[in-house]
Amino acid sequence: MDTPVVYATPNPPTPGRPVIFNPAVCNGCNTCAAVCPEDVFIPNPVKGESPIILHPEECWYCGVCVDDCNHGGGIRLNHPLQQRVRWKRKATGEHFRMR
């Protein structure tokens, strides 16, 4: 097995991934970056790539980046684990949670 390359990195902020891009749909138009009320993103230095999530812990989880996506589905919201609500199916009693 090859020796893996290990980087010395600071701990990332938490929650660190408020949104997830779909690279098959996102073309880096940066509309999400433009409308974000918290200025969470910056445009990617590589043209055509999805924006960089520079300030993930400042996300307000309002979802306008998803709502206003020009390409419908280029980006989705990703609730932090501790914010994922549970529910129960009344007829069967099965328990579910946000995924």
Partner: peptide
């Protein structure tokens, strides 16, 4: 708490 409050508040960071 920037790390825990985002989705739980009515008014954003601005």
């Amino acid at each position: 708490s920037s790390e825990q409050r985002g989705s739980a508040v009515h008014r954003g960071g601005s």
